[in-house]
Amino acid sequence: MASVPRFWRGIGSRYNLEGTRCNECGEYFYPPRNFCVNCRRVGHIEPYKFKGTGEIISYTVIHTAAEGFEDQTPYILAIIQLDEGPRLTSQVIGNPENIHIRMRVRSVFRKLGEDGEGGMIYYGTKFVPEHE
């Protein structure tokens, strides 16, 4: 997992899907950008909290997990497109047999990982099927 300061700096976006939006062209950014890639110096960026709903664009089912995630296999890792536009990679909680592309999902608050039994616990956003 990330170092403690590195994780701490991203708490806003990890907990609450805080990103940014350019008021000039209307594009949303997650993770947050402080510079609009479309409007460049005429862009006007401001904070934006995403609604937390979207759909699965693609997914994979992890059977052989990285260290720290072994107890969760098989689990779903998906590219999710938020309703506002940005795409992100996140775990989707649910039965891999019931998952499908274009499935609607919503954000929930879960443990993302931890640094062993004595280290920091990393909390943040995962997704579940929208009507669960």
Binding site: Q72, R110, K111, Y123, K126
Partner: peptide
């Protein structure tokens, strides 16, 4: 609780 749930979540 699920594996990734605790009193905080």
């Amino acid at each position: 609780p699920d594996i990734d749930e605790d009193a905080a979540t």
